[in-house]
Structures are given as C-alpha cells and as structure tokens.
Design a protein around this nucleic acid. Structure first.
Length: 264
DNA sequence: CTGCGTGTTGCACA
DNA sequence: GTGTGCAACACGCA
C-alpha cells in the first residue's frame, strides 16, 4: 500500500524506535533487493554506526548515519518495519535486519520483495542523479503547474510519474482526480492552469490529511476511491453515474465517467 | 486453480 | 528526450 502517507508513517515509527542507538550487526537476507548498491556497502557503513535522523522523498525513506551517508529503503508494495525485542522461541522474517547494541532489532520486512535496499553517500545527490521530481507535499503550485503542463500523456500517468512529482501512487491518483472531477485519461498538456491548480489543491489536501491520520485506512474512509476500488458502484456525488474500471498507462484506474470530465 | 495487483526498473520500439 | 507496453520481482487474496 505504501504511497507517500504510509512512508511518512513508517518514518515516524523509525524515529520513535531506532534513532541514536549503536548498530551492532546488520543482516541482509534479500540481496536481490539491493538498489545500485553492493551488499558490503550496506553492512560496512551501518555496523558500528548510529542513525541520527531520517528523511523522506516521495516514497523513498532515508536513515542518515552519524558517520557515512544514509541507508535507503523503498517499501514497494508490502514493505514495513517491525521493531522488537528478540526472544529465543520465535524468529521473524526480514529482508534487512538491524540489531542494536541495546538488544532490540529493527526488521525491514517485505513479503513480496518489491522494495529496495541501498546505501547512498548523499541523499540530495541521489535524488538528483535518479531524476526524481519534487516531493508531492513540498512542491509549489507554480512548479507543479509548470512540470505537469509539459506532459503529453494521461494526467493520471503524469501524477504517478515519480520523475514528475514524487509520492503519488495509484490509489491516491484516482482519488485526487475524482475530487478534481477530471477524467484520468485527460491529456495533461491540454488541461488549463486553473484545472492543474485544482488538482494541486486536492493533492495537497488529501496527502496532508492522510499523513495527519498516520495513513490509517479506517480514518480515510471518506475518500471514495481509496476505499472502493471496484467498477459499477453508484457514484457518491449523486451524479447518477457508476464507477468504471480501465487500464491507463498500464495501471488499474477507477473513476466516475459521469462527473469526471475528459479533456482531449 | 487461475488471475490479479497498492511499485519500480529496464528493455524494445515508435 | 518522450511515450507505450511488456516482463520481471514474490506473495496473498478472491
């Protein structure tokens, strides 16, 4: 599920549990998840070191080390943290395990292994080198309109393109466009500046609210397309339309063809 | 038992 | 460089 709000919630969990403790031992059980990184770069740079602060850019999480660079994690579709005190009876699965000197462990778990693990010398340099766009919660309205307006593909695809804006995933893109009443297949560059500002406003509002609620889905029920990802449902806007499913840009899209207008 | 997906990369090709 | 579409990763779920 992880989109920007979930990653922010994972960041809080990490901040609460894993800062300022000396790292004793690191185990990597999923070397296939390494992202532009050698296994020894992760192990050697973490062991004996201390996490001092964390950062998030879009869906990427970084834990900055006291001495050298930062641990990079991406949660893919099923990634999560589990901080625990080990006992001899049960052992937990992990892709990456950080054992602290105080005896507790932080497991980065990812059953589907679609996440990423890495080490970067410099976070900003990494983001720039990879070409990721500004974070969805930090980008200015002006910059948002400018970068989105250049694109000649479906607005949904543009919102989800991490190299345009970082942090919006499939589910939130559907919800944002539903609230903006714009059809997800509308071509980005034919939308007016006013329409893009509307999209920007909804993007900010929804993401902020989801972050405030700690990405707790039970508290985000009011968002129709986060909650209902099915076709043929009655549109809650009372437009008498029914939800539709379509693959857009290779991703599953849900929308109301009746109240979301399509432009070009 | 089959098919699908909340994410991303990397490739071939227009 | 921009955009499209696919396969790949592995697993839970309907």
């Amino acid at each position: 599920m992880p989109e920007l709000p979930e990653v922010e919630s994972f960041k809080r969990y990490f901040d609460k549990t894993s800062l300022h403790q000396k790292i004793k031992k690191v185990r990597l059980s999923a070397p296939d998840m390494l992202f532009y990184t050698q296994e020894k770069d992760v192990l050697d740079n973490l062991e004996g070191n201390i996490f001092v602060e964390t950062r998030r850019h879009g869906k990427f999480f970084f834990a900055l080390l006291k001495k050298n660079g930062a641990l990079l994690l991406h949660f893919g579709m099923t990634g999560k943290f589990l901080y625990y005190t080990p006992d001899k009876k049960s052992h937990r699965s992990f892709a990456l395990l950080v054992e602290f000197e105080n005896g507790n462990c932080l497991a980065f778990q990812d059953s589907r292994r679609l996440g990423m693990i890495g080490w970067v010398r410099d976070v900003d340099e990494f983001i720039q080198r990879q070409g990721y766009g500004a974070d969805a919660l930090k980008i200015s309205e002006k910059d948002f309109v400018a970068v989105v307006h250049k694109r000649k593909t479906a607005i949904k695809t543009v919102l989800m393109n991490q190299r345009v804006v970082a942090g919006v995933g499939n589910e939130f893109s559907d919800e944002i466009l539903f609230q903006a009443r714009i059809h997800p297949e509308s071509t980005a560059n034919v939308l007016t500046a006013a329409q893009l500002k509307t999209i920007y406003g909804h993007m900010k509002t929804i993401l902020k609210e989801a972050v405030k609620q700690n990405a707790d889905r039970d508290k985000l029920r009011q968002y129709f397309f986060l909650e209902n990802r099915r076709a043929d449902l009655k549109c809650p806007e009372g437009c008498r339309g029914f939800t539709e499913f379509k693959t857009i840009g290779g991703r599953s899209a849900y929308f109301c063809p009746s109240c979301q207008k399509r432009y070009a």
